[in-house]
Each structure stands twice: as C-alpha cells, then as structure tokens.
C-alpha cells in the first residue's frame, strides 16, 4: 500500500472511531485518577503501596455510605472519603515506620498483607454484593457528541483527571512544598539540616497518595461499581499504567494512562480479536522497547 492510500484511508478510519478515541481519553483519565496516588508514593518515597487498590475500594465504600446510606450530597461523600484516605495514609505511615530501615521489598510485602486484611474488612462491613454510587444528578444524562450519545459523567471524569494531572504536577514540580519533597528524597540529611522534619514531610506524601487513591475510588465507583475483587482489578490497572509510563513519574503516569485508555478503547474497536490480550500485551511491548517505561530514567 502506498502512503497516499494510507493517508486517504486514515481520516475515514478516524471518523468512524472518533467516539472510541474520545472514550479512550475518558478511560485514560479515569485510569490516571486511579494510578496517580500510587505513582506519587512510589516516586517520592520509593514505597510500592500494594494496598492501593484496597484503599481505592474502601474510599468508594466510605463515600457510598455517606451518599447512599446517609443520603448526603455527593460532595460530602467525596470530602469524607478523601479525609478517610488521608487518615489511612497516616496510619500506613505508622505501620511502615518500624521497618523503614529495611529494604523496599519488605515494605511492599507489608502493604500486600494490608491489602488482604483491608479487602476482607471491606467485605465484612459492606458485604460481597455490588454497591454503586450513582453519578451526581446533573451528570446523569447522555449528551450528543459527534452524532452519538455519550455519558456526561465520563466527560466530567475526563475534566477531573486532567485537572488532577495539572494540579499534582504543579504541586510536585513547581511549588516550594514540592521542592522540599523532592529534596527530601534526594538528600534526607540536607533537608533535615534545614530544620525541616523529613518524617513529617514523608507522612504528608503518604497521606496525599492514599487520599488520592480514596478520591479515585469515589470517582470510579459510578463506572466500575464496588465489590470484592475491584481492589485487585484497580491495583493491577494502576500498576500497568505507572509501569508503562515509568515509575514515579507523574507525566509518565498520565501518558501511561492515556496509552492504556486508547489501547482498551480504540484498540478494541479496530481489532476486537486481540482485545483480551491488549492490556498486558501493550505493557509487554512497551517494556520490550523501553525496559523502564516511557518516562523511566533509573
């Protein structure tokens, strides 16, 4: 086939699948929301938090309790869940503290044990039935995009995801708080010498990361719904996203999320036969070409 023929075929193909491309972005931003907390904790603290999925699920359940159980507003549910996530992060800090001097492996393993415990506790409190948080009333409709109906909530998720990406990037890379964070990672002693309590800074990072996990649980619940098993699903998706992007890199997580979103959406639309293999296949291909992810450096 000549280039001209490809060029002629391409716009038609894209037109046909514009909705899939748009949806790939929405899915990608949802994935970013799921993964950003995991990426942040790994990037700044070198701790692989395998309890991330469990905290995501618990955050969703907490918001479910507030919104559906107590009949409170969506924002109230979101706020309580984020607060819960932050507290969970502080608790995680306390739990990790006694083994801070040990290797990364032990810390990751500890969070794996926590994941088992937390997901079972979630089943004890909320049962193994499906629970879901309805999307906010003003988003419970479909809008016409490109001649097809598209759920408004997904458009909102897309916006939230982008906003989150910008905010987290700016905080970590462009503010003084972020500078302290990064410096604390590079040279603990130096930052301590400046009179800054590094332990407290690290605790703040943990709290922020788990608060984001919990936030993701609330945002994701209307699309994924909540039940046992969702924690593992989310953990694996989030790991794929940050590994493809390059561990610990916020732009990497964003790119990884968008890549996976498109693979799952546009990829499936183009070649449905490979859909079941697309998710992990994409990761294998990326790591075969770049063993440390797209933005990986270490």
């Amino acid at each position: 086939m000549t280039f001209a023929a490809v060029g002629a075929a391409l716009p038609g193909l894209l037109n046909e699948h514009l909705v899939s491309i748009l949806n790939g972005l929405a899915v990608g931003m949802l994935l970013f929301t799921m993964a950003v907390g995991l990426s942040l904790i790994f990037g700044l603290m070198d701790v692989l938090n395998l309890a991330h999925g469990a905290i995501f699920l618990l955050g969703g359940y907490v918001a479910f309790q507030v919104i559906v159980g107590e009949g409170q507003s969506w924002l109230a549910g979101l706020a309580v869940a984020v607060g819960f996530g932050a507290v969970a992060g502080l608790a995680l800090g306390g739990i990790l503290r006694p083994i801070r001097h040990r290797g990364h492996l032990d810390q990751a393993l500890l969070t794996l044990g926590l994941a088992f415990v937390l997901s079972d506790l979630a089943t004890i409190f909320w049962g193994s039935d499906f629970q879901t948080i309805p999307s906010p009333v003003f988003l419970q409709r479909s809008v016409e995009v490109l001649g097809q109906f598209y759920p408004a909530y997904r458009l909102a998720v897309m916006g939230v995801g982008f906003a989150l990406a910008v905010v987290v990037y700016l905080v970590v890379e462009r503010t003084q708080v972020g500078a302290v964070l990064r410096a604390a990672v590079e040279d603990r002693a130096m930052v301590s010498a400046l009179g800054i309590n590094v332990g407290r800074v690290m605790l703040a990072v943990l709290a922020l990361g788990t608060a984001l996990a919990s936030f993701g649980g609330v945002i994701g619940a209307p699309i994924l719904s909540l039940s046992p098993g969702v924690d593992a699903e989310v953990l694996i998706l989030a790991l794929i996203v940050i590994v493809i992007g390059g561990l610990g890199s916020i732009p990497g997580a964003l790119v990884g999320a968008i890549v996976i979103g498109q693979v799952q959406s546009l990829g499936t639309a183009l070649v449905p036969q490979v859909a079941p293999f697309a998710l992990f296949g994409a990761m294998v291909i990326v790591l075969a070409v770049r063993p440390e992810g797209i933005f990986g450096s270490r």
Partner: peptide, 13 residues
C-alpha cells in the same frame, strides 16, 4: 517492579 509486572503480564496473557 518492572520485572514484577512483566512476569504478571506473561501469566495474565
């Protein structure tokens, strides 16, 4: 973690 995820990927595939 990259090794961890690649091995996971092969198993899932």
């Amino acid at each position: 973690v990259y090794f961890l995820m690649l091995t996971l990927a092969f198993a899932q595939l």
